[in-house]
C-alpha cells in the first residue's frame, strides 16, 4: 500500500485582527487564530481516513487545504507525490487536481438551483473539455437514481437524493480521492444509512480513497480504516477503529468516547466532561488539553507532546502509557 496523500507539519492561521486603523488607534496587537497546528498524517490508497473532532478542531480546514481550496500557512500537502501549492508543471498539476473531488455537508447549498442535474453532474468533465454525452444518466443510475432525473432541477429532490447527486458529480471526473466534509450530518438516520452504504459500494467499485470528516463517532467507526482525532487544531491520536474504540489512549479521546450517547446506555449516568474547548486565539501552553485533563502533570503545561507511536496507535500525550483504561 502506498500513501496517496501525505500531509506534513500542516498549519493554518487566520488573521482575526480588527481593521488596521482601529488597531492603530486602540493600540491593539494583531490577533492570530491557529485553526490547524502541525498536523501530519498519511492516507493510504483505497482506504478511508476519518478526521473527528468537535467544532473548532480544524477538521474542515484540513479538508479544504487538501483539496486546495485554501492555502496552508506552513507545511505541505502532497497528493500522488505532487505538492499542489509548489508544483510548477501545469500539466501534471491539472492531472492531479482532477483526481480530487469533494462532497459537502449541505446538499441544499452545494447544488446550483438554476442548473439541471445533467449539467451539474457533467460540469467537472465539461470544465476539462471531456465528452459528457450520457455521462450524467450513467452516473445517476450508479448512485441509485434514474436516468430520467437528469432533466430535473435540484429542488425536485429530497435531501438524501440531493446528496446522491453530489456523489454522482464527485464521481464524474473519475477521481481517486474524495474529501467528504460531514456528508451525512444533514440527513436523517435512515437516509444516512442509504448514503453511507452507497459510498462504501462505490469505494469498492471504483477503488476510491476517502478523507471522511465528521463529528459523529458512530459514523466514523462504521466507515473508517484509520481515525485521526483532532483537538484545537492538533492531531492528538490516530489509530484504526478497533484500537481507538477499545483502548483509547489520549485523555481527550477517552472523554469523547465516554460522553457520546450510546444506543445501549439505558439510564447510564454520564459524568459530564469538565470545561469547554479553549479559545484558539490564545490556546493553552504545552498540551492544549491540559486544563481539562484529569491526569495532567506539570510537564503537560510546559511542553507540547509529540505524536508518538504506541502499539497500533499514534498518540500525542506525555502520559499515554499510563492513561489506558
Amino acid at each position: 500500500m502506498t500513501a496517496l496523500v501525505r500531509v506534513r507539519d500542516l498549519s493554518r492561521t487566520f488573521d482575526v485582527s480588527k481593521p488596521w486603523l482601529n488597531r492603530l488607534l486602540e493600540r491593539l496587537p494583531k490577533r492570530l487564530l491557529t485553526a490547524v497546528s502541525d498536523v501530519s498524517f498519511d492516507i493510504e490508497e483505497r482506504s478511508v481516513y476519518a478526521l473527528v473532532g468537535e467544532s473548532g478542531s480544524g477538521k474542515s480546514t484540513i479538508g479544504r487545504m487538501i483539496v486546495g481550496l485554501m492555502t496552508p500557512s506552513d507545511g505541505t500537502v502532497e497528493i500522488e507525490g505532487v505538492d499542489l501549492m509548489r508544483e510548477t508543471d501545469t500539466a501534471r498539476l491539472r492531472e492531479v487536481r482532477s483526481d480530487i473531488q469533494m462532497i459537502f455537508q449541505d446538499p441544499y447549498a452545494s447544488l446550483n438551483p438554476r442548473w439541471k442535474v445533467r449539467d451539474i453532474i457533467a460540469e467537472p468533465v465539461a470544465a476539462k473539455g471531456g465528452a459528457t454525452r450520457g455521462l450524467a444518466e450513467r452516473l445517476l443510475e450508479q448512485v441509485g437514481l434514474s436516468a430520467a432525473d437528469a432533466d430535473k432541477f435540484p429542488h425536485e429532490f429530497s435531501g438524501g437524493q440531493r446528496q446522491r447527486i453530489c456523489v454522482a458529480r464527485a464521481l464524474a471526473s473519475e477521481p481517486r480521492l474524495i474529501v467528504c466534509d460531514e456528508p451525512t450530518s444533514a440527513l436523517d438516520v435512515s437516509v444516512q444509512a442509504q448514503v453511507l452504504n452507497l459510498m462504501s459500494d462505490l469505494k469498492d467499485e471504483f477503488g476510491l480513497t476517502y478523507l471522511f470528516i465528521s463529528h459523529d463517532l458512530t459514523v466514523v467507526q462504521h466507515m473508517a480504516d484509520t481515525i485521526g482525532v483532532l483537538y484545537l487544531g492538533r492531531l492528538v491520536e490516530e489509530a484504526d477503529p478497533d484500537t481507538l474504540f477499545d483502548t483509547p489512549r489520549h485523555p481527550y479521546t477517552q472523554m469523547l468516547l465516554e460522553a457520546a450517547p450510546r444506543m445501549d446506555g439505558f439510564g447510564r449516568e454520564v459524568v459530564p466532561p469538565q470545561g469547554e474547548i479553549p479559545d484558539p486565539i490564545d490556546p493553552p501552553t504545552g498540551c492544549a488539553y491540559h486544563p481539562r485533563c484529569p491526569i495532567a502533570i506539570r510537564r503537560c503545561t510546559e511542553e507540547r507532546p509529540e505524536l508518538r507511536r504506541i502499539g497500533a496507535a499514534r498518540v500525542a500525550c506525555h502520559r499515554a502509557e499510563e492513561s489506558a483504561r
Binding site: 429530497s158 438524501g160 437524493q161 438516520v189 435512515s190 437516509v191 444516512q192 444509512a193 442509504q194 453511507l196 452504504n197 462504501s200 463517532l217 458512530t218 459514523v219 467507526q221 462504521h222 466507515m223 474504540f245 450510546r262 444506543m263
Partner: peptide, 22 residues
C-alpha cells in the same frame, strides 16, 4: 428499521440496514 440503520458501535457489519424509499 430505524435501529438497524443507525451505525451501531462495535457491531462490525460492513453494511447498514436500509429502509427503502423515503
Amino acid at each position: 428499521g430505524l435501529m438497524g440503520s443507525t451505525p451501531l458501535a462495535s457491531k462490525g457489519q460492513r453494511r447498514l440496514h436500509q429502509i427503502p424509499g423515503a
